[in-house]
Simulated assay, not measured.
Amino acid sequence: MSYPALHDLILEPLVRSALMEDLGANGDITTLTVIPAAATYSARLNAREDAVISGLQVAELAFRLVDPKLDIITHFHDGQHCAKGDALMEIQGSAASILSAERVALNFVGRLAGIATLTAALVAETRGTKTRITCTRKTTPGLRIVEKQAVLHGGGFNHRFSLSDAILIKDNHIAAAGGVRAVLETAKTRASHMMKIEIEVDQLDQLAEVLEVGGADVVLLDNMSPNELQEAVAMADGQLVTEASGSVSHDTVAAIAATGVDYISSGALTHSYRSVDVGLDF
């Protein structure tokens, strides 16, 4: 499956900031000291393990920001599966430029491919069901847009990008507003007709109250057992989109999906992944 690429205008501030952090005030002093300015090389960005790739667009931008004259050929697209030993990208040109962009490029690819690979593993556990895997806002500050893109590359779906995307009423909102009925009635009164309303519940009697009051579009079923989730789906009976959250792992996701929920949200996709091993070889 192909995925729409983010525009470079969106990505450039993130990549430029990472390069500025790495180059510091004096630039790559090791390369400036030991590599002749005229030296040219060909390098390959290689996968050192099987993975679902993400971050190649970002890596290419890192190399081009350092040196627009570099010749870059990508052999894979973000969202594709690769095998250990596959060459993901080839870069030719100034050796100094390649070396100066290397770490930033690898940092992005390793981490984003880690997110995509973990997402793909959870998605695989839901095959045969209608359930979709989605991420949360538990992302690295400043990198949300690329981390959520990596979730898409792994076959998942995106939840809110920010607090301004939708109304998501959590347990603390309910407590502060005076209960399920009070918070939903207020939300119904004040929300735009274009704005979705989701409410979190952790007990079936709360769900019953949500259904009685009305006004919600989605219900977040938090930390419920598979039996409770199955009962919640039956209670909702298509009136609400159902989303399960809490204690989601490779070991539990199949059982959660089997309950019939529409979505499973997992913060682990963007905070507990393992970076994929990728390397740049001259």
Rank of each mutant, 00 (worst) to 15 (best):
A5L: 14
D8M: 10
L11S: 02
E12D: 09
V15E: 04
R16Y: 08
S17Y: 06
G24S: 08
N26K: 13
N26W: 14
T31N: 11
L32C: 05
P36V: 04
P36A: 06
L45I: 14
N46D: 12
R48N: 14
D50S: 15
I53P: 05
Q57S: 12
V58W: 06
F63T: 03
F63L: 07
D67N: 15
K69M: 12
L70K: 10
H77W: 09
G79A: 00
G85K: 01
E90Y: 01
E90M: 12
I91Y: 08
G93W: 05
S97P: 05
R103G: 03
A105D: 04
A105L: 04
L106H: 10
G110Y: 06
L112N: 09
L112E: 03
A113P: 01
G114F: 05
G114E: 01
G114W: 03
A121C: 05
A124F: 02
T126C: 15
R127L: 14
K130I: 11
C135T: 15
P141A: 12
V146E: 08
L152T: 12
G155C: 04
G156H: 08
F157M: 10
D165F: 07
A166Q: 14
I167V: 15
K170R: 04
A175C: 03
A182K: 12
E185M: 12
K188P: 00
T189A: 15
H193S: 13
K196C: 00
E198S: 10
I199C: 02
V218A: 00
V219F: 02
L220D: 05
D222I: 10
L229E: 06
E231N: 12
V233C: 10
A236L: 04
A236N: 07
L240V: 00
E243Y: 11
G260R: 12
S265W: 05
S266M: 13
A268I: 11
H271Y: 11
S272G: 00
Y273P: 01
V276H: 06
V276M: 15
D277H: 03
V278P: 04
